[in-house]
Design a protein around this nucleic acid. Structure first.
Length: 256
DNA sequence: ATGTCGATCGCTGATCGA
């Protein structure tokens, strides 16, 4: 079973890339972020045609998340949940669903803009709420994947070396990431030896992709019962090389 | 450091968020 996370930065614009990628990789479960589309505009029919069921939590202009599951291999998704229970939030950043016997969460963590800003404070509050909720969610669903754009680069090796104490790499953000690890989760990517300087996001500006100036901020965290099933975890840079790409590359974990 | 995108409002460009 292959589970991926991909911040598409507008589902409308990236739909052709997504459909090509689904056909090429046959990924079973895809967690999408930054749909930037309302639920009424979600391309249900196109994805159905490609063999995928979709659960989504969208809004106009900003945010928006979805989970796609390949019907042939996964059957029906169940127990769909939107947003963090008990955390009042206008922003659509979370969707969870059970696919076969795995609880899957697609999460778009707040960007935070700049350390110390109001948006940064919101990011930390959101991270607290997520962590509290996940503790319960893991107790209910021991086989769980937290997939998404975390907007946090956990370690210095996940970052172009010039970045220090800025947004995405600051100590409070990394402490929050460690808090998720503290729930017993494992970063699937770091279970394996990986090439150096492998990132999942590159700024559109300053030829960042060509210069490989980027961050590893898209992650798949798995709970202990899934750790032993993880066979690989890779970042697929191919879609980032296409015309009109998302600024993020998909990350894929393969479970036995 | 900000040179790029994408969406919106509402008009063919400015503004915002990332």
């Amino acid at each position: 079973m292959k589970i991926a996370t991909w911040n598409v930065n507008s589902l409308k614009v990236r739909l052709p890339h997504l459909l090509d990628w689904l056909a090429a990789t046959q990924t079973d479960v895809v967690c999408l972020q930054e749909l930037k589309c309302e639920d009424k505009s979600f391309p249900v029919a196109e994805l159905e045609e490609a063999g995928y069921q979709a659960a989504f939590n969208g809004q106009k202009t900003y945010n928006g998340v979805a989970i796609l599951s390949r019907k042939e291999t996964c059957g029906e998704m169940t127990d769909v949940q939107q947003n963090i229970p008990g955390f009042a939030d206008e922003q659509r950043r979370i969707i969870a669903a059970t696919v076969k016997d795995v609880r899957v969460i697609s999460a778009y963590f707040p960007n935070g803009q700049a350390v110390g800003s109001e948006k940064f404070e919101y990011k930390l509050r959101w991270l607290n709420a997520l962590t509290d909720w996940l503790r319960d969610e893991i107790a209910l669903h021991p086989r769980l994947v937290l997939a998404g754009d975390y907007n946090i680069a956990p370690e210095d090796r996940d970052v172009t070396p010039e970045w220090h104490d800025e947004i995405h790499v600051s100590v409070p953000e990394r402490d929050a990431f460690k808090g998720l690890i503290g729930l017993g989760m494992t970063d699937a990517f770091r279970m394996f030896e990986q090439p150096a300087k492998l990132y999942s996001w590159w700024d559109y500006r300053m030829m960042a992709f060509r210069r490989n100036v980027g961050l590893r901020i898209d992650h798949l965290l798995v709970t202990p019962p899934l750790v032993e099933l993880v066979r690989s975890c890779v970042i697929d840079k191919a879609p980032r090389k296409l015309e009109r790409p998302s600024d993020h590359a998909p990350v894929i974990v393969e479970l036995a």
